[in-house]
Each structure stands twice: as C-alpha cells, then as structure tokens.
Nucleic acid binder design. Structure first.
Lengths: 219, 219
DNA sequence: TTATATTTTTAGATTAGACTAAAAATAAAA
DNA sequence: TTTTATTTTTAGTCTAATCTAAAAATATAA
C-alpha cells in the first residue's frame, strides 16, 4: 500500500503534530526523521499528491483524516509488537523499540487482528503508551507528568514520555517501572528537582526526570 | 547488513541449487524471483563482488560458503515465523507463506534466538520443512515421496514438497496433514496414480499429488 | 559445419529516495 | 524599514533496483 519511507514520514508527522500542537515544519520533520530538509520537501509533495496531508509552500504540513488513519495504524502495530516482545519473548522495555520499528511495517491486517487477540487486546504498550484499537480509538487516562504533582501527593507510574534506552535504564536502576507507586516528599521550586519515595527508598530526582514520567494521582 | 533484494536473491539461489542440483542459470533465477534476466545479471555481479557467490559470464552462479550461510539464516527465520503464525496465532498452514516472506527480513539476532526458545526450538515448520539451527544445521529425516512407496506399505505424512495454498487446501479437503497415516492400497504404473487409505476413507490420487507429499515409511 | 534458436549480457532509461549547493521566501534584528 | 539570519524550496546528482532493446555468446538443428 505505502512504501516504508512514506509510512515513516506519516508516523513522524503524526507524532510532531501532537508534540508541537498543530503546524509541522519541514525542518522539524527533517530532524525527527534524521534526513535533510530538501528530502522532506520532496516527500511531503508526494504525500500531498496522494492526499495524505495538506501542504503549502513555506507553510508546513498537516495530515488529512486519511493520513492520520494510516499513521495511527502504524503506531498500533508498533505498540502491539512491543507488547509481544516484552510479554512473550521477555525482552526488556529498553530493548524493543528498534525491533518494533521494523515489525510495524509488516503488511497484513489479519496478522495484527490475531496478534492483538493473542496478546489479550492490551490497552497500553510496555512504556505506558496507549494502543489504538482497530478503529484508531485510544483509551484515555487521567495521567499527569510527575513534575506537575504536588508535595505529599502520590501516584502510580503509568508511562514515560521519553523512552530512550538510557532513560529507561535509569528508571530500572531506581526501581521505577509501570505500576510503581511514587510519593513526592519534597519539591524544590528553584530547579524543579524533587525528593521522592519509591518502596522503602527515598531519593533525589532532577526536573528532567520528573518531566518525563507519567503518573496517575492516588488519594 | 544486506538489502531486502539481496536477501531474496540469495534465498532463491539457495533453493534453486537444491532443486537443480548444482549450476543455477540466470533465467532460472529470473523466473523464480519474477524479474527479468537482465536484472538478474546486474544483481548477480553485485553479489559476486561481495563474495556471496561465484559468477562466470554465461556460466551461471554458485553460492559461496558465506552466501549459503546468509541464505540458510533467512530460511531459518522464515520457518520459525511460520511456526509462530500457525502455533501461536492459529493461522492455517496455507496462509502463512506471504507473511513469513516479510518477517524473514527483520534484522535482530536476539529476536530470533528468543522466538526460537519461545516456540520450543522446533525442528520442522508447519509444512514439514526442517528448520536450520543457529549454526545452519538441519535435522535430517528418512523421508520419501509418497510416489516412491510401494503397494501395501504405509507411512506418516511428514511434509509437502509444493506448498502453494491450492495444494494445501486440496490436502485439507482430503483430511491429510502432517502426522496423518497414509496406506497405499493400489498403484497404477501407467500414470502413477494411486488408491490410498486415510483414516477410514479410501480414495484415488493423481501422480502429481503423490509426487508432492513426503512420508516416513512405517512397518 | 553452417544456420537458427535460445540464453545471457550490455547499454541506456526509469523510479524512489536521498544528497549538495544555490536561490527564494519568511522571520528576526538593527 | 532596511539588513541580516533562518527556513524552505529548487535544481541538479547519486545509488539501488528495476526495465527495454539490442548485441554477444552459447546451444541446437539442418
């Protein structure tokens, strides 16, 4: 249906639309996909021809409904495969991204339908990101960044914003994973750092960390 | 490591070396891969540069040890994925080829190691073809074509030579699958057709069928 | 053994996707 | 509002993999 490159552009643009709230620039796409802006211009014109996005010279792009549908389907496949890799093949959550990046391009509706069933139709991937259902609908949750919660409140870790291997390994070292209870014992307003409690341990975390961890607040 | 096209050429040549016992011609490759002979010449020269096969103009090609290693690894991946699709996702044996054809190109040693373990290190795929181990070694079995066995002998179906969806569906209709006992009740020397017994049913099969079914003889 | 047919290779084009370098448009600063 | 800087596009190349058409080598037949 679509080439590998086309799928990767659509996926990247979809993610950028959410991060940047709207207008996605040529440079932003180039950076996210690790290519040159001139290459992006070419591809974007091709995708506009195919009605997957709208494009005005010098004005950035916006996915059409069709483009979004394609992108969401790739994201669905990516996240289902991540669940498979972690739940069934016992990969660690910091090892699955690159492999899922390849698996997401396998073409077979039936395969994904069956994989989803095999995995018990999971709602979230191993990093806590929601898995769109076959109609593209996401399970919404009340989640906040850890950095947004107040002193003495506590929450359960439900996901990560950044999911680089480095960050995930840091979390492992601190014994934080999805489902872990985290209580904010103190918050430094100057630099946003925090003292938190995880299990019996209490320790310091920087703002960068707190800004990349999603929690669901508990009473 | 290798491009998709390169991998497909190596795999096709490997299979042809076995079917044709040795020398593989440009035309044979072109036919098997559904491309033009001129394209094959180009690619074959490229693969020769990379020492994956030896090539003499007008004389056909032969895989080097390295080329065989690569080909066998792709076949290993293909067959392991087929087992996954049938055993875990409940696909039928006539539906898995095209999907495995894509999955075989996913690059990750670790993935295959874990998949193999998850599946219980199977020796054969759903069509009865042997799965090379990680060193490329195949489990050998004493198998014969059904067409080669004598009247009143019986055997267990252990594989198929041809594995097109059409042939597999024919076998299903006749209730023949891997593990099925087959007894030869009669054999017509003129056209090689047979009367066989499968379960309680007795029926006629043509030579074409008997020539594409592998059995292991039983006393 | 010459003539004919088949197979294989070469030469030249094409397409997707990327790149560099330079030009054009837009945005920011003086 | 000019000038300067940044972003984006265009124009022209490049590589992988394919193709067509024609030439060259090999195989087959008279």
């Amino acid at each position: 249906m679509f080439t590998l490159a086309e799928e990767n552009y659509l996926k990247a643009i979809f993610h950028l639309e959410h991060e940047l709230q709207g207008e996605v620039s040529t440079n932003a796409i180039a950076e996210s996909i690790e290519t040159k802006p001139s290459s992006v211009t070419d591809m974007v014109q091709k995708l506009a021809e195919k009605k997957l996005l709208t494009y005005k010279r010098y004005k950035g792009v916006q996915l059409t409904a069709e483009g979004k549908k394609v992108a969401i389907n790739i994201i669905r496949k990516h996240r289902l495969w991540e669940v498979f890799l972690v739940e069934k093949l016992n990969f660690h959550w910091d090892e699955v991204h690159e492999i899922a990046e390849q698996l997401e391009h396998i073409q077979s509706e039936e395969l994904i339908t069956r994989l989803d069933k095999f995995l018990g139709s999971p709602d979230f991937d191993p990093h806590g990101d929601p898995i769109p259902d076959k109609h593209g609908v996401l399970k919404r949750t009340e989640k906040k960044l850890l950095s947004e919660i107040e002193k003495n409140q506590q929450g359960v870790c439900v996901g990560v914003k950044e999911s680089s291997a480095e960050f995930l390994q840091y979390l492992d070292k601190k014994k934080i994973s999805i489902g872990t209870k985290i209580k904010v014992l103190g918050k430094e307003f100057f630099d946003g750092s925090m003292i938190i409690q995880v299990g019996n341990e209490q320790f310091f975390i920087s703002h960068i960390i707190a800004e990349n961890l999603y929690v669901q607040i508990q009473e």
